[in-house]
Nucleic acid binder design. Structure first.
Lengths: 130, 130
DNA sequence: CAGTATATGTCATGTTAGCTAACATGTCAA
DNA sequence: TTGACATGTTAGCTAACATGACATATACTG
């Protein structure tokens, strides 16, 4: 695909980007400050944007309008790059079963019941046995 | 996989979930209110949580701690279900090229140049012709 | 060079998100 | 029935987010 270099090529000045996106310079700088976009610079430090930058800015605009904050947008962008990332430390079955069991024991000692007995017995005894 | 029904089974009371997640009841209710979790209810309207709910709650806790707000979390959760969603209205090459061309024309008329001439000529003329 | 556009930094601000506290009422297992 | 636990609701706090608004300095372009 020879279009790609075109889309990532820095050709647009601040002025045009503002018109194209409807964002203020302040906003655009703010997003760069927060590492959502990475425009390149001229030798005089002026920002030059690519078509990809425009897309990103429009996406940022959308997400902000729908209530997502900068931190959220950053997360979302990262998620798009590594769809398999975001490894959440899920409680393993084993781990949690022992916690629950422990809690159940305590509850019984304290004459309190915080767990639904019916569900619990099904939880522990139904299906395969361990 | 016969484990799945176990993970989605509502067996945990508010009390335990609070201890397991370190969240207050108020927080948990707040997240339900914002449709991040959907615990089932007893006949007496009391919430009963599943292991999946615990996972979700822990993920919410993580994301909130990292600065993502509720709206962002909701987006992220939706994104996990439909990884191909989030159709962003990208500016098409054609579309944008004409905008840029138009802008360039105006700029020249106004004796102003908002685009970098060198880059522009490369942008329009390099590579394949249209 | 003159004039406009941009950079950077700081101060200020409105809004609101996320939460706590507090209540009165209702639920639950023994 | 009892006493711990949950519930929905209301009211209010606080901190921070995203921008606006300036001021000053530097960069462009004709």
């Amino acid at each position: 695909m020879e279009k790609q270099w075109r889309r990532s090529m820095p050709i647009l000045s601040m002025n045009i980007v503002m018109q194209l996106t409807g964002l203020t310079a302040r906003q655009i700088r703010y997003y760069e400050e927060n590492e959502l976009i990475f425009p390149s610079r001229t030798e005089g430090k002026q920002r030059m944007f690519s078509l990809d930058d425009i897309d990103t800015l429009l996406e940022i605009k959308d997400l902000l309008a729908s209530g997502v904050n900068i931190a959220g947008i950053k997360q979302i962008f990262e998620m798009k790059k590594q769809p398999a990332a975001t490894s959440v430390h899920k409680i393993s079955d084993v781990e949690l079963r022992s916690i629950v069991k422990e809690e159940l024991k305590k509850s019984q000692l304290n004459q309190r019941v915080s767990l639904r007995q019916g569900d619990l017995s099904r939880f522990f005894n139904n299906g395969k046995s361990y």
